[in-house]
């Protein structure tokens, strides 16, 4: 079977691109890490890729807020290319800094609002960078078609971020996110491995590591093609990467579904 080419854009300060590439490779895709400068000067084109994965890191040092300047570049330099990809239903996945950039670029803006976006990712409620393993559940009502085969999936993987708290402008936003199926992942209580007994983290630290509203760890857009999440499933591809605790919870199925959807 041919391996679909997956674009992994690298901005200065991006990291975890190599782990993302490893996950894509093992999931059956052909990862291509490309510096945004080469996309900008036309060396490499978005159109030659079946999907886009924006990885984690600290693009441009996050000096203008987490993912802020990368978001600006997505909006100003690559708006057309991304628009084409979204309309074509090509999967786009943003992890951590990539998620922050997609949110701030308006690609994961939450429910439609007359002015500006209605969701953001901001400082963790404890005010600190936090690195720890969490348990994630894929939201059953999520409208992302490529996540559809994974509705029973529970993923264990680390978070590593200082600005990962998902905040919304008001309660109405949360309601329309639920109604619209825009919630893709939630933090679960760490004990809840079999999906049957899954319980939400209920905002309790450390299961919900950053104080995200309604335990939301990731979301998708109205088309269902664009998905973003704060935790790092690319850091749980092999069994040996998992700390002690219940077995299972690999992040690999997520990347397999992503690659499958890009075929």
């Amino acid at each position: 079977m041919t391996k679909p080419p997956i674009l992994i854009p690298h901005a200065s300060g991006t990291n975890r691109d190599q782990e993302a590439a490893q996950a894509i490779d093992i999931a059956g895709g052909d990862p291509r890490v490309v510096h945004v400068n080469r996309l900008l000067n036309g060396d490499v084109s978005f159109g030659d890729h079946a999907a886009i994965l924006i990885p984690g890191g600290f693009s441009y040092g996050d000096s203008l807020g987490a993912g802020g300047r990368l978001a600006l570049e997505l909006r100003t330099w690559f708006a057309d290319e991304l628009g084409v990809a979204v309309r074509a239903g090509r999967p786009i996945l943003g992890i951590c800094n990539g998620f922050q950039a997609l949110v701030k670029a308006g690609l994961l803006a939450g429910p439609q609002r007359p002015v500006g976006r209605s969701v953001t990712l901001t400082h963790n409620s404890n005010g600190k960078f936090e690195c720890r393993w969490v348990t994630l559940g894929i939201e059953p009502g999520c409208r992302s078609s490529w996540l559809a085969p994974l509705y029973e999936l529970v993923v264990r993987c680390p978070v590593a971020h200082g600005e990962g708290r998902l905040a919304v402008a008001d309660a109405e936003v949360l309601e329309s996110m639920d109604d619209g199926g825009l919630v893709a992942f939630r933090y679960l209580d760490s004990g809840s491995t079999p999906r049957g007994s899954a319980g939400r983290a209920d905002g309790v630290y450390p299961a919900n590591p950053n104080g995200s509203v309604a335990d939301i760890a990731g979301m998708c857009d109205a088309t269902g093609a664009v998905v973003g999440l704060m935790p790092h499933p690319e850091d749980h591809i092999f069994d040996w990467q998992r700390p002690s605790g219940p077995p299972g919870g690999s992040g690999l199925p997520l990347f397999q579904a992503f690659v499958e959807a890009s075929r």
Binding site: R16, E19, K128, E130, C131, A160, D235
Partner: peptide, 15 residues
């Protein structure tokens, strides 16, 4: 310790 990323590069076996 938790304010340091000790997972990045996906190679941490004993934390």
């Amino acid at each position: 310790v938790r304010t340091y990323d000790h997972e990045v590069r996906g190679g941490t076996v004993v934390r």
